[in-house]
Amino acid sequence: MTRLSAIPGLPPLVACAGLLAVWELAARAYGISGLPPAHEALRELPAILTDKESLYNILASMKRMAVGFALALAFAIPAGLMMGRSRWVAAFFNPLLMIIYPVPKAALMPIIMLWLGVGDASKTLVIFLGVSLPVIYHSYQGARAVEEKMLWSAAAMGMGSRARLLRIVLPAALPEIMVGIRTGLVLALITMVTSEMIARKEGVGDILFNALAMAQYETVYATIIIIGALGFIIDAAFESLRRHLVAWSDPVHEIAVVGST
């Protein structure tokens, strides 16, 4: 057994196969229309992935996710670092952060739609909010934990405070920032789907909920599989990038995805 589990990629494959088997058996045993057998949902996959309209929807979702995510990083990392290095900035933003963090971002969607409509802007903004909070929080924590003596060493070399923020605080906090970004990526995917569920115009979420409304349960489950696979691929790609970028650091604590949709 130990030798088998040492093969990379085998345990997750076994876990997936197990889940599908349980699903298949449960579907056959109970015969509920809302729970089609696994093989029927899987059979829908090629149809969705070759359908032009579905692909367009998936790509539109991904585009919003990418834009919201990129904007969030551009805003949240500098904001978090400044909070971590300035007591005044932290005292000002921290209470706001603590209030906004636990609010489900999708719950803000109806209000945001009143301002920005049901188009890309609203959805991108919700994704932006979802990603920003964990990234700000971890950037803040990372910047706060930077050793004072490291900054002093840099100051003695003649580095000014802006140079230190960019070239000492940023790299020193990078392992912690990456933890926030990884959480942010998962939240980006979640808020992407939930925003489309509320503002039903296009996107992966729209395919899912249209299919649900029309009782096409195979499509519903197939879409859920696609979303799950997307999340898995994005996370795995990011994780390999992260390992590469912060190979110099001691392993950071295990990443727990905590957040709200």
Partner: peptide
């Protein structure tokens, strides 16, 4: 008036730049 390269510190905590 502040730190300067004429005074070089060495700390007990080493304070190396771990990414370098």
């Amino acid at each position: 008036t502040g730190p300067g390269p004429d005074r070089g510190p060495v700390f007990q905590e080493f304070a190396l730049f771990p990414w370098k």
